[in-house]
């Protein structure tokens, strides 16, 4: 807990290598490389349409990157986040049965859920809650993989099953407490005010017990007071729950205040990376934001 800001640990938790993403003619990401150190708060910033959400989608497995690798390295356990999505067969697979079987396995049972199971959770820019379920149900669903899902035990309401449900409820209440939503436990998620929905989505992501949590514009639509609370919450997650945070944010005050490392994206390319102090004075970043070359839209 104390060695949070210790200088560069040996191996990064997440490393993104040569990530390229094409949508038809659009080159949304072009050879993106960056690393997220364990237990850090790393921010991904850039102007609108720079490709930040696309990076998230590639990391969390919702898009299959055209090229490049995403490697999660947690305490010596390395997961190739691209492989678990299921890849096309390569010619070499036809002479290498184990590789063939592995790819077949991931093609059949792989998918973005595997990325979460490997320890990466996320929130969405346009909040995606289960709107017509209660707040509590949202958090219980998030614990799906940790619950007793045996049908027979559930039907007979055995001790094992009851204990599992009770634990889930406790975890859910714990997280409600953390994000300050205990009062709303039995309200429909879709009926909550916007700021609460954002916090609930973070709590829901945390219920999956991730190593890395990716937050896509968590402060969008929040008022100044809520934004301050959010930065406290994010710090709390990192300090007390041992997770690494990767966040996309437009609110520079928030970003500069809480992150240790910043990656700047523009037109699908990394144009700068470094500490907040370095980024603040980087001329390339200023140019991208102020649009010295291009016309400024805002």
């Amino acid at each position: 807990m104390s060695d949070v800001a210790s200088p560069t640990p040996p191996s990064p938790l997440l490393s993104v290598q040569g990530l390229t993403m094409r949508f038809g003619g659009i080159l949304a990401l072009n050879n993106v490389n960056f690393e997220v150190q364990k237990n850090s708060i790393t921010a991904l910033i850039g102007p609108n349409g720079a490709g930040k959400t696309t990076v998230f989608n590639c990391v969390t497995g919702f898009y299959k990157a055209t090229e490049g690798q995403v490697i999660l390295n947690d305490n010596g356990k390395t997961t190739n986040l691209r492989k678990v999505l299921g890849e096309k067969f390569q010619w070499s697979d036809y002479v290498n049965p184990p590789a063939f079987l592995e790819r077949l396995y991931y093609k059949t049972f792989g998918g973005s859920h595997r990325v979460n199971q490997a320890g990466v959770a996320r929130t969405f820019q346009n909040i995606r809650l289960f709107r017509e379920m209660t707040v509590m149900e949202n958090l219980l669903v998030a614990q799906h993989n940790h619950l007793d899902r045996n049908l027979i035990r559930g039907m007979l309401n055995t001790k094992h099953y009851r204990a599992s449900e009770k634990r889930a409820l406790e975890t859910a209440y714990y997280w409600l407490e953390v994000v300050n939503l205990t009062e709303d436990a039995n309200r429909l998620a879709g009926d909550l005010p916007y700021g609460n929905q954002r916090r609930l989505e973070i709590a829901r992501a945390m219920c999956t017990e991730p190593k890395l949590v990716c937050l896509d514009e968590p402060a969008a639509g929040l008022n100044p007071r809520e934004t301050v609370e959010l930065s406290t919450l994010i710090r709390h997650l990192r300090d007390k729950h041992n997770v690494t945070v990767l966040l996309i944010e437009h609110d520079m005050g928030l970003v500069m205040g809480i992150s240790e490392h910043i990656v700047v994206l523009d037109y699908g390319q990394v144009i700068a990376a470094g500490t907040p102090a370095e980024i603040e004075v980087n001329p390339k970043v200023l140019a991208a934001y102020l649009g010295t070359e291009e016309g400024d839209a805002s």
């Binding site: 289960f130 379920m133 998030a142 799906h144 999956t208």
Partner: peptide, 30 residues
């Protein structure tokens, strides 16, 4: 009973938002 068990909850969550379910580590196909 199933409706209040993990499996039933997962079904309803899937009906609400499949992408969110996947982000929570649930295998939507199975």
């Amino acid at each position: 009973r199933l409706r209040t068990m993990p499996m039933g909850r997962a079904w309803e969550a899937l009906r609400e938002d499949e992408i969110a379910c996947r982000s929570l580590g649930m295998n939507h196909v199975t």
